[in-house]
Design a binder for these strands. Structure first.
Lengths: 223, 223
DNA sequence: AGTAACACGTGAGAC
DNA sequence: TGTCTCACGTGTTAC
């Protein structure tokens, strides 16, 4: 349900249209055809502030996360060449063969390589959607920004969970004088392997901590 | 001071050795020479659990973060070809010229392209060092894992700073609007003219406030 | 003039 | 056997 196989990353990257039957006519149309216009052909990707001072070169990158993009893992949806009707009927090629291999796995190879390139470009697009701040639009800068963003996020997570742990445990730390002031106002209620600690905070508020062997829900009841 | 420009990502990626003067002898030595051995040529990158069930293909990826890797931004450190001593002394090429362009910007182009590839591979290596869990070793999987890891980190940051905000606002400041936030996490237990409010702070701590007309003792019991 | 970035096809290697 | 991934060189386009 969540991963439709249509519109994976439409108009996001070149993704090479089916590309009919001319085999090496030296790609002139198929180049600008996909999205090679190279001039700001994307709508809006995320919160990139459109830093257009130097970012003249950019790849389209328009859509959202493609659904895992693993649908291109299947061998070949439309592989036209398979030892059937040679693409060039003219020139029966009566002389020697064109090379060591007649034309077997060569024409399939370019298609596989094309699919591999498309998959990699989709992954680039996905990563670009995941990184909020991309300095420039080329792939190398995207990789660098992704690595920097990951480092920044990890630092943020470390800082946050550290200060969260400190803030959570600061009420029970005896030497932390900022909270309760005195250290003797904690009341312990040990019950078997569980303990219930209650500390008054202010006049009408109390902090309660229950510690148990296994994780158990904390339910309180007036008595 | 913190970023030396030597040893950027040594033995991390192919990075194509200087590559003397043969221009298109069809790369046979230069291929396995860098690191193309394709069989686990890296030491230890991070905490990858060596999932060797299918990951037979991997790129070296050995070192740590390269210091921004922008040292390869300079035009060309050792560009051997510049209209001086044609690379192939034999075959004086007395006939027609080899093409529309004699040999001007062609030999420089391959070097620029090589540097571009190396820079991109260094960025891949840096990103690979930043992502702790990489399922497989190919580039597409690395990009997917990086995007997934970024999403996971962002979710963790959101959760952490949310509960940090809750823990910080758990002093029951009535006028601070930031306390409510979601507003739904406070549980009220009205009992006549008294109310008991319980808010979870962290995982094993709760803040409790009881409001009553007259001062009454607060006794809690596990249920 | 000239650099930078991209997609393409192709040979090669590892499963 | 075929499939997959990669690096390479080349043509092209936009600054």
């Amino acid at each position: 349900m969540d991963d439709e196989l249509l519109s994976p990353c439409s108009s996001c990257f070149p993704v090479s249209p089916p590309f009919g039957q001319f085999e090496h006519q030296h790609h002139q149309f198929i180049e600008f055809a996909p999205a090679r216009s190279r001039s700001n052909g994307f709508s809006e990707t995320s919160s990139v502030p459109a830093k257009s001072e130097d970012a003249g070169d950019l790849w389209p990158a328009g859509s959202l996360l493609s659904p895992d993009s693993d649908l291109s893992e299947l061998p070949a949806p439309s592989l036209p060449a398979s030892t059937e009707s040679t693409p060039r009927p003219a020139a029966k090629r009566r002389g020697r063969k064109p090379g060591p291999r007649p034309e077997g796995p060569t024409v399939s190879h370019v298609e596989a390589e094309r699919q591999r390139r498309d998959k990699l470009n989709r992954r680039f697009c996905d990563l670009r959607a995941a990184v909020p701040t991309v300095s420039r639009m080329d792939k190398a800068s995207l990789l660098a920004d992704a690595a920097a963003y990951i480092a920044e996020l990890r630092a943020g997570v470390a800082r946050l969970e550290d200060e969260s742990k400190q803030a959570a445990a600061a009420r029970w730390d005896t030497r932390s004088a900022s909270l309760g002031g005195g250290g003797g106002s904690i009341q312990h209620f040990p019950a078997g392997d569980e303990t219930l600690e209650v500390r008054m905070v202010g006049r009408d508020a109390a902090a309660v901590r229950v510690t148990t062997a296994a994780g158990s829900a904390l339910t309180l009841r007036r008595a």
